[in-house]
């Protein structure tokens, strides 16, 4: 504290400049145009969020029913589990480049790439969540005369909600973080100051980065609150859930049973 009394050190200085960039417009590095400031940042943030929200919404529409159905019939474990690995292995940047051939530049291209990024975690977590639902509850539901869709809706979905939400959270963070690639396909997002650092300058790069990080944290927190609000009371409270959570992850189970006897 006492060392920084006169001039702030470089890091703190850059941070202060970055915040200033977010609030007040300034002339660009290249000159001639005003960049930064609350207005431009709000527009970019809105674009960023719209793109991310669309990608997550489409991913949910695809992955939730598919995951619920695969989990319910207990098939396609390979598909559901390996989806997340493949999803992580294929870089979104490559997808954007790939889609230029089919969708050209623009919103659709980035939306498709981000949707493909968002699907795997939701699919995997939904599948694993449904498979982890107490088989006795499902057997009892069927034995009492619930139809298969009723079993999914009234038993399997509420009981796997926690896992499903985990997947959505994971997807949301990745998508919000990856949407900075938007400008590469000429979609203006918070990635614009980062990609066009030669126009926006170091302060713009850092300012936009801070904003993206803050957004990701905020969305994660909001989804966490939503998850807790939606979790039925009967599933809460019991805090020591470690064995239950372990039981839900299939590959851990397999490792356990593969021990030499």
């Amino acid at each position: 504290m006492n060392a920084v009394a006169g001039t702030p050190p470089f890091a703190a200085n850059a941070f202060v400049e970055a915040i200033e960039f977010l609030i007040t417009p300034r002339e660009s590095v290249t000159g001639g145009v005003q960049v930064g400031g609350v207005d431009e940042m709000l527009t970019l943030t809105a674009n960023h969020m719209l793109l991310s929200a669309a990608a997550i919404a489409i991913a949910c529409l695809v992955a939730l029913p598919l995951g619920l159905w695969l989990g319910h019939v207990g098939k396609g474990e390979f598909l559901a589990i390996s989806a997340s690995n493949v999803g992580r292995a294929v870089p979104t940047l490559a997808l954007i480049a790939f889609f230029i051939a089919f969708l050209g530049l623009g919103f659709l291209n980035v939306l498709a790439a981000l949707t493909l990024l968002a699907i795997p975690p939701i699919l995997t977590n939904t599948y694993v969540g449904v498979r982890g639902v107490d088989r006795d509850a499902v057997d009892a539901a069927r034995g009492m005369g619930m139809t298969e869709p009723q079993i999914v809706r009234r038993v399997e979905l509420p009981l796997s909600l926690r896992s499903v939400f985990g997947g959505v959270q994971l997807s949301a963070i990745s998508v919000v973080a990856t949407a900075i690639l938007g400008p590469l396909a000429s979609v203006e997002t918070l990635g614009t100051p980062i990609v066009s650092v030669n126009v926006y300058g170091q302060a713009g790069l850092l300012g936009a980065s801070i904003l993206v990080a803050a957004l990701a944290i905020l969305i994660n927190a909001l989804l966490g609150v939503a998850q807790r609000a939606l979790t039925p009371r009967g599933l809460k409270a019991g805090r020591s859930e470690a064995p239950g959570i372990l039981r839900r992850i299939p590959f851990l189970q397999r490792q356990g049973s593969a021990q030499p006897t």
Partner: peptide, 16 residues
Amino acid sequence: RRRIGYVIQQVGLFPH
């Protein structure tokens, strides 16, 4: 099945 009561060993109550 709605006309036949069903009780299993682990009960299978719906925890939620």
